[in-house]
Design a protein around this nucleic acid. Structure first.
Lengths: 297, 297
DNA sequence: AACCCACATGAATTTTACTCATGTAGACGT
DNA sequence: ACGTCTACATGAGTAAAATTCATGTGGGTT
């Protein structure tokens, strides 16, 4: 090591290495200039400066183009590898101290009914992190271009380059208003009431009814909502029964706004996950959010 | 690779890395300044600049000293390794284009009688290399502090950290003036003449005489010279017979200045080598000289 | 011949690296 | 408590390097 540190006295002007690496990789000073957002002249000067420092050319100047010469072919991979590693670690360290904001992609129902009521505890625990919610009525996949993490439901946690952390598997419950609940003493009573359907989850009602022993459902037309949020509100207003993941209505059931007249052990076939880009797994904000949400589940 | 080159956009100011690495290694801005031959203030500014670029401190500032913090501990080995590799390869390339001069250590006799007459061909082939000869009358070992390469004779080519390349194993010949040669028709005639001795090679005469079948040598006092060069001149002037490696008198025998009256197959027990520091084996000038001298042998 | 392309070159300008002078915060000894 | 020393921090000024701008050079193509 001591021997090696003696060698360090012969470092070239380090700034020139950036220009050299880009020009060598792209085999073009012009392209390197574009990539580094400087003029072609800057690249030319920098490469020339490096060559003077080394005492040898690194490129063959051909008409209208350049090629690495023998020395350049030796130097390029070493410089590239070194700069790559520095850049990678630089990025790692920057990310760890990164953005004090975190954008979470979440279903609107989950946002309103579960996450937002709990945000205060996150805020108290991690006051340095500003939380942004990216919510929508639609049932969609995690989009890493728009959000840092996603809190989603999926049956197939297997998209490439994403890390899925299972938070909970959720039971489906059938809930309705207290008034309707009074008239439901057994599975056979279900035929008298409407099931409030949500687009994308239209089979839940049939599966749930079967799980509680009901042999037939009402022939009445089922209202169709575009989110659980609205369907849940309609149920609370006595318009029927909605089948939803239990955690979304825990509060309502606890305070009597909604009633689950019949018990069921029917689980959702998928799971609720926190998902993020694999390569961002080390980021502090993401790790903190994951830690926190695991504590909430 | 493409992914990685995208990451390169986040390189820090590269010059700052040199200051950081030295300060981290020496755990002292003051020591780093001394090593890099700048002021303490320069180191402080550079480290601060890097820390701003990264968005985090890299050192804990303690009273009268510094310590790497968590981020610094991560960053230091990566940066050190990268700079080491760049420095090493930089040095390699610089050496390959190094010195356009080459100092060759060589016995004076070899210089005068063999190497100098051939220097022109080397000069013509490698005009960019200036040849310096380090010659002496004394019989010595290769000294890497004084010369880049040595052309020496040795029986034991095994000193550590040196590379020996065998050029030739040499036959010993007994030569004398044409006048003396006329009187030598067989081994028995040798007793009438003096052998011209060189300090350090006093056994050569006896060995050679035995190899040609001579049963006894002259009892006359043998003149003692301190180099083959002088002994060869004395032989040419009719003062006796000198036993020397054949290549040193090839020219004289060819033009009749000296005669080898009796043939012998006696080889020198050692060999003639080109020798240099092992670690300098890649240097162009040394490699070129080796290539050339092998062609002369 | 005219035009285009890509690198080279030198002067001028901008930015970064470094110095100088001083500040800050201990640590130590009297 | 005070004085002295050490090592890092800070800001203004200076020196050096990076970059731009304008133009040159040498093909290649039509």
């Amino acid at each position: 090591m001591w021997v090696m540190s003696m060698v360090r006295r012969t470092l070239p002007p380090l700034t020139t290495l950036r220009a050299f690496e880009a020009a060598a990789r792209l085999v073009s000073f012009k392209a390197a200039a574009e990539e580094l957002r400087v003029t072609q002249s800057a690249i030319s000067h920098q490469v020339a400066s490096l060559e003077r420092s080394l005492g040898t050319p690194l490129f063959l100047r051909l008409p209208g183009r350049v090629e690495l010469n023998e020395a350049g072919v030796i130097y390029f991979p070493v410089v590239q590898d070194a700069l790559d590693k520095i850049a990678f670690t630089t990025d790692l360290i920057r990310q760890n101290n990164a953005p004090t904001s975190l954008t979470v992609q979440v279903y609107v129902t989950v946002a309103v009914r579960w996450l937002i009521p709990r945000l205060q505890t996150f805020k108290e625990k991690f006051p340095e992190i500003a939380m942004n919610l990216d919510a929508s009525l639609l049932d969609w996949e995690f989009n890493p271009d728009r959000a840092d993490v996603g809190f989603i439901y999926t049956r197939a946690p297997n998209r490439p380059n994403l890390t899925y952390t299972l938070l909970r598997r959720e039971r489906l419950v059938g809930v309705c208003s207290p008034a309707i609940a009074k008239s439901i003493t057994g599975p056979d009573d279900l035929r008298h009431f409407s099931f409030l359907s949500v687009s994308g989850n239209t089979e839940d009602a049939a599966s749930w009814a079967a799980s509680v022993g009901a042999s037939g459902l009402s022939q009445k037309s089922s209202p169709l909502f575009d989110s659980n949020l609205l369907a849940i509100e309609a149920a609370a207003n006595g318009q029927g029964i909605v089948i939803v993941p239990e955690f979304l209505v825990e509060g309502d059931v606890a305070n009597g706004t909604l009633v689950a007249p019949l018990a069921s052990d029917l689980m959702q076939p998928g799971g609720w996950y926190l998902v993020h880009l694999e390569r961002r797994g080390g980021e502090k904000a993401i790790r903190k959010f994951l830690q926190w949400i695991q504590g909430q589940a």
